[in-house]
Design a protein around this nucleic acid. Structure first.
Length: 257
DNA sequence: ATGGTGGCGCGGCCA
């Protein structure tokens, strides 16, 4: 059986709901994980999503952060506050859907290398890695996906010199991501031949999208046994071309399970 | 070094 799973930082689900509904209809994923919904749970548009044949779980807060998982099939074993994370924010949503354990993440941005938020990002990554390690022990078929706010290497950066040791690209951030991969995860995007300068995020400023000045920071990581059955991973730039787009594009992977 | 844009929410923070 083929499973299609996607991740998309929507930068406000209130604004992007019509685009999300259109995207679901056009792409028919089994699972779509969202980040930066920026909605409290009482304002979440669950009925609109259920009306198009999906189920949804969500963990939100006012103004910032917020994650959701939209899926064809029932969602079980929902975790929003992994043991030891204790971040007081809504950045994590773990669910089980069919054969897959899914961990949807909105990783701390970090603002600037050396800042307090940067130190917190590294601490947050260290904490979530403990949860991922325990999830890998429990689940053969684990997907860890979302907005990692880290470009894994220089291929994922439009101008590696300009971004050298800057936020989203610094060595400690990349090492933290590397430590996650070393637990037994694979960056599925790199299992396949990809166009050079493939990115998933472009700053709203300076016409960055038109000039393809982007980074690849939205990732779909899979446990090794699941990655062995990965048949594709690609970035869908179409929604980034729409009026009033998110600054991120969706990433989609397919797995034989 | 700064500013460029967008979302939230109505001033400033965050990305």
């Amino acid at each position: 059986m083929q499973v299609k799973i996607a991740t998309w930082n929507v930068n406000s689900l209130k604004v992007r709901l019509p685009q999300v509904l259109d995207w679901l209809a056009a792409n028919a994923p089994d699972v779509l994980c969202l980040q930066e919904t920026k909605l409290t749970d009482d304002n979440f548009p669950a009925a609109d999503i259920e009306a198009v044949g999906y189920r949804v779980v969500f963990a939100g807060e006012k103004t910032y952060n917020g994650v959701a998982v939209i899926a064809r099939h029932p969602l079980a074993d929902i975790v929003t506050d992994p043991p030891g994370l204790d971040d007081g924010q809504r950045r994590v949503l773990a669910v089980t859907s069919g054969h897959l354990r899914i961990l949807n993440l909105y990783v701390v941005n970090g603002q600037e290398v050396g800042s307090d938020k940067y130190a917190w990002k590294l601490e947050w990554l260290s904490r979530i890695s403990r949860y991922i390690k325990s999830q890998l022990k429990e689940h053969d078929h684990l997907v860890v996906l979302g907005d990692f706010n880290i470009a894994p290497d220089d291929r994922d950066v439009h101008d590696p010199e300009a971004w050298h040791e800057r936020i989203l690209c610094s060595t400690p951030e990349r090492q933290a991501l590397g430590a996650l991969l070393d637990l037994g995860l694979v960056d599925t995007f790199r299992l396949f031949e990809q166009e050079e300068k493939s990115f998933s995020w472009w700053d709203y400023r300076a016409a960055a999208f038109r000039r393809n000045l982007g980074l690849r920071i939205d990732l779909i990581l899979a446990s090794r046994s699941l990655a062995a059955g990965c048949t594709s991973c690609r970035i869908d730039k179409k929604p980034r071309r729409l009026e009033r787009p998110s600054d991120h594009a969706p990433v989609i992977a397919e797995f034989a399970v």
